[in-house]
Amino acid sequence: MLLEYQVNGGDFTNAGSVSSNVKKMMRQLGVDSSVVKRTVVALYEAEVNIVAHAYRGVITVDLQPDKIYIKLADEGPGIADISQAMQEGYSTASVAVREMGFGAGMGLPNIKANSDILNVNSVVGKGTTVEITNNF
């Protein structure tokens, strides 16, 4: 089953609504709650990254009986050095943002830890695509 959601950069208020929906659907399928939890955490972090770092994005969710595939494609500044961004503690967040409690640089490492397959692709000046696959 294919679903699509729009995400706006800067809208922290609504970040998390996609995760809520996906969680509910996985539960309807009867997916093990540890897998539901992993997926929700990964998706939430990736969703917040669009809100925090990009201009806008589209989240596509493909839910299958045995796995879930999520693609988060955004229009934004892109990531120049992905392997650096993947490191724990790396963040380009400003001091002001860090003071708000964001920008610990744990988002991407968390996404990696909570997905079975993770692909990150980016074109600087254009946007970033994050693909998460979790098997049930």
């Binding site: 509910k24 309807q28 399928l29 299958q64």
Partner: peptide
């Protein structure tokens, strides 16, 4: 113990079909 009220069917393929139909 958890007792989720959401589960649509014990068979995941059937649950999937039901979810698609309800959607």
């Amino acid at each position: 113990q958890p007792r989720s009220m959401d589960k649509l069917d014990n068979d995941r393929a059937v649950a999937m079909q039901k979810m698609e139909k309800a959607f």
